[in-house]
Design a protein around this nucleic acid. Sequence first.
DNA 1: TAGATTGTTAATCGATTAACAATC
DNA 2: TAGATTGTTAATCGATTAACAATC
Lengths: 214, 214
Amino acid sequence: MGTDAPKIQVSTSVVRRMSKYLRHLEELENDGISRISSQMMANQLGLTASQIRQDLNSFGGFGQQGYGYSVEYLKSNIESILGVHRKCHAVLIGVGDLGRALIQHIDFGKYGVSIAYAFDIGGQTSDSRIDGVEILPIDALEQTVRSCQPQMAILAVPPEPGREIAKKLIELQVFGFWNFTNVDLHIGNPDAVVEDVHLADSLLTLRFMIGQKT
Amino acid sequence: MGTDAPKIQVSTSVVRRMSKYLRHLEELENDGISRISSQMMANQLGLTASQIRQDLNSFGGFGQQGYGYSVEYLKSNIESILGVHRKCHAVLIGVGDLGRALIQHIDFGKYGVSIAYAFDIGGQTSDSRIDGVEILPIDALEQTVRSCQPQMAILAVPPEPGREIAKKLIELQVFGFWNFTNVDLHIGNPDAVVEDVHLADSLLTLRFMIGQKT
DNA sequence: TAGATTGTTAATCGATTAACAATC
DNA sequence: TAGATTGTTAATCGATTAACAATC
């Protein structure tokens, strides 16, 4: 609290599951359940109890032998771990269908992410605001980023402006990317932290899996 | 060709990379490159040559020693493997921001997926079509699914109707789910093929990773 | 033929699962 | 205290990487 969070070496899979645990704990809390064992939670989430305990213990011991985990205590610890209370500023690049849907569909505030500005690529939109987020022309990117110093950029543009813009942003010291663009941002940018959401890959993967079942 | 594709046991990670390879091969083809080695491709994609060869060889030998891979030949083989030429029918459940963005943003046709119908949950929309896709009230789901027998359902609704609707769809023999809903469909549905796109988990994971870097 | 690069087997690495002693 | 369930170490499993013989 107040001190820098220790840098713990965990795999992305673990972090992703932490986020699932948090979601599940919120549900449990809503249902008025105050206590849960790793075994029960494993059944409910389709995992193993062992994995859940391993995951949690890579951040610390939040349970009590013979009792299990307090839903409230564990939830609040996972919230700190994931940092939902720390503010994180983001810019959205690309206000097409997807960018628009993201702004309107995702409760960024709940995750401590605030979208400072959105940037319009080649006159995609005629509005000046979406859901309260101000839309600026792409020309204003550099100046705006310099002044508001966002930690995250949400890339929802076609590959071609995408590659260029990502490079620019990294020069401007933006290192976190939520990448909806079919561009590989890791290449040549070892410092970038990239979370890819490649919907086309996802769709093709599903398509293949369905084929296998038939 | 004409015969049933053999059911090959590969991990989801491999399939997902196949889709990346396909995307990359398309780019190479556009650039007029007709030949590529695993080593070159590994550099371009930030992978190891070994992994690429392993991945490809779990489906067959598409290369030639001393030469590498023909871009065109490999591309067409991956297309067959992923089945982009086989038609796949899908229904979209939920025409909110996200459902709408998916229809407008993703080139389903390119991946051999055709969206037969979209279903409106609780009057989300007043249109009757989006991008040529007919929108029906959710009451019509059962009858429509029985008659058009889609292999895939795209779930873009809130968790609560989601859980219920998924159950219904499985009863109606729809086993493939592209799941944008924060509901765990695997549980209790061992037959379901589910590809989860949990955007909130993804955002939280990125948020954590950014925190680690700082 | 010599050089290059695959296909494939073996070695390594990491992640998941199992087991159990510690302890509430 | 006895029973339950964690935290943690050890065993297993699977995926990635390395190595190299086959061969174009």
